[in-house]
Design a protein around this nucleic acid. Structure first.
Lengths: 201, 201
DNA sequence: GACAGAAACGAACGTTCGTTCTATAAAGTC
DNA sequence: GACTTTATAGAACGAACGTTCGTTTCTGTC
């Protein structure tokens, strides 16, 4: 691997962390150059345009997310344990890899949802993929016999997404230390509602 | 009321709509001046600084939100009907008053959660107030006998917030027309879980 | 160690940014 | 209608923006 690819990755690592605080539209070539100790032009050459740079940041965030949230959860037993691990990882992933401003993708969803263009498309695509992966994980719970066969998979994925969003908002905006527990409580209640063996609550 | 207050309000109306698309940090004095047909300096004089302008936009959005979501719901019967109206209004409020990019406050929560300062404080305060109002509305459901006395009020408010966030994300980012129905389904299931008269599901 | 290609730099471009001034026009007061 | 206050416009500021260019410095290969 050439040295170019190396520094490009180093730039992106810095960029993701910076985007976590100021947003992806808040990124500027100058600020990122200063943060990495490079010249504006030297950094710029790696991407060709600011928009390309931002797109690269979105993709890098996506990679990081999968590495931190999804892949570790694959070691859990398929079905409910794995789904639970996914949610647990999701709730803390930004803190885990030291993104002080929270998940850049969640923020990007709000930044670009009103502005058509490649960035909006990329973010929408990334979150769409993730939602589908989440719904699939719920589906596996049905297959594994953890949830009832008539479980509305997409609806459940929707609700899980919601309780994670709520938790992230509370922990980022209010610094509420209970937000994770709240989300897991809601998750467990949701799961027990569709549980095949109606465990007592 | 002097003419100053009038145009100031007109500016803020435009600003809220623009912020809906580009975010509150995406607002610039120049773009807003062009949109309102004023000169940069003429518009600027109404606020004294950009930050003061952004703070005014946050407060204006808050006012608009209360007028559109909360106050109309007060005509419903106290308790569950009113809470249900609040949620229903909340789900469509941005569309109702023609904010094409969705709720500026929800976006602002993500924009500023990583950057300490007056804007972060204002947004956090506004959303904190709203959350408390929501929890209070849930509490009224308990008082009115719609929900069980042991209902965990804050937890329920947390979950309601989550399902609204999920709906707003889906409708803004994926243009999913089912997102409202999904949220109401989740809401009704949540309510029936804590219902005093355990209605059949 | 010479050479070719890639990578980084420094300077400059035209714009836009937020902000400050001074001057003109409008609104409110008597 | 004159006078004072308030509101708006216009010009200009230094700084930061994204981008281009030509040059210099590294890196990997023979």
């Amino acid at each position: 691997m050439g040295k170019g690819e190396e520094t490009r990755q180093a730039i992106l690592d810095s960029a993701v962390a910076l985007a976590s605080q100021v947003g992806i539209s808040g990124l500027s070539v100058g600020s990122l150059a200063e943060r990495t100790g490079m010249s504006k032009s030297g950094l710029f050459a790696h991407f060709g345009s600011k928009e390309e740079m931002q797109l690269a940041v979105v993709r890098a965030t996506q990679e990081l997310f999968l590495d931190t949230v999804m892949r570790p959860a694959l070691r859990e037993k398929r079905g409910l344990p794995r789904l639970r691990a996914i949610v647990a990882n999701w709730l803390v992933w930004a803190r885990r890899i030291r993104l002080p401003g929270g998940c850049p993708l969640a923020a990007a969803a709000h930044e670009f949802d009103g502005q058509p263009g490649p960035l909006r498309d990329e973010v929408s695509h990334a979150l769409g993929l993730w939602r589908r992966a989440l719904a699939e994980a719920v589906g596996k719970c049905v297959e594994a016999g953890d949830l009832r066969p008539d479980t509305p998979v997409d609806q459940v994925a929707f609700e899980i997404n919601g309780l994670v969003l709520a938790s992230l908002q509370d922990s980022q905006l209010f610094q509420d230390p209970e937000s994770e527990r709240r989300a897991m409580t809601a998750f467990d209640r949701l799961m027990s509602h569709y549980a095949l063996n109606p465990a007592k609550e």
